[in-house]
Design a binder for these strands. Structure first.
Lengths: 143, 143
DNA sequence: ATTTTTGCTATTAAATCAGTAGCAAAAGTA
DNA sequence: TACTTTTGCTACTGATTTAATAGCAAAAAT
């Protein structure tokens, strides 16, 4: 259990955990689309390779952003769910999406509208809505 | 000028630009510590290698998050400054720091206090303060 | 005129990412 | 019950990115 962080900087420490091209997209799929299984994550538009997906899920589980479990009804499927620590990334994701909408749309002409997903409302309301919605999904999934 | 983004997702698009282990740390050094030169960035506690720093600065300039220029007084030193697009990353950085403070401190026992930097105040006040402070630095630098 | 500083590039090695194939076990279907 | 499909991966190969160090030319400082 050694300290593998580059420095004592909180920003750098976060990047040491989720500062790669995929981790936050997995969290996005869970938070915003309710994805739960390996298969679910495999079919994102960004097409993550199974090897990378596998290693990222392990890493996120090790760092307690997600849990992995099987439900009694299905002994094959692994169910991945965000922990509270993971759910609390919602404000970060919201700010990134708002920045992107405002600043990258000119570069990425294919970018989705964020109004559809309700991101043009009050910032903290949006974030809380996403979080509470997800917490309900967890309840429903685990019964 | 082709579209090199992985998808139309705003989150993924941002990660395509600053989703590596170093870009946001460079923005951090500029915003929070007023760093402006290659040398300044070289001496961060995370010790970025010159080759990576060089390529990241080029990339950030290409994507218009920073500008690069020489001041009349010094024809050797390059001065790197954040554009408005770069300054607007402040809310993202604030949220990441707050998440880290709350959720990674247990893992990274060497983490700095964020109270010292004033991050325990009202969120949008903190962000705006950082941004206005930086805009003033730009003014002072360019005269 | 000499030394130091700055802003890099070059080089090599290591780590990570990406794409495809394939496979065992569980689940679904006939 | 046998067969097919689905799921959740692992293995493999190659490409790309990152990391660490050395070094160097031009400007600035002494």
């Amino acid at each position: 259990m050694e300290n593998n962080f580059r420095s004592g900087c909180p920003l750098a420490s976060t990047l040491d955990i989720v500062g790669d091209k995929w981790s936050l997209l997995i969290v996005r799929d869970m938070l915003l689309q309710g994805k739960k299984t390996f298969k679910d994550f495999s079919i994102s538009p960004e097409k993550i390779a199974p090897g990378i997906l596998s290693s990222r899920l392990k890493w996120l589980e090790e760092n307690e952003l997600i849990t992995k479990q099987k439900l009694p009804a299905n002994q094959k499927e692994n169910i991945y769910l965000l922990t509270e620590k993971g759910i609390e990334l919602a404000p970060v994701i919201t700010e990134i999406i708002l920045w992107s909408d405002k600043n990258l749309r000119v570069q990425n002409t294919e970018m989705f509208s964020i109004a559809e997903a309700g991101f043009n409302q009050d910032k903290s309301k949006v974030t809380e809505g996403i979080q509470n919605n997800y917490r309900q999904l967890v309840q429903e999934t685990l019964g």
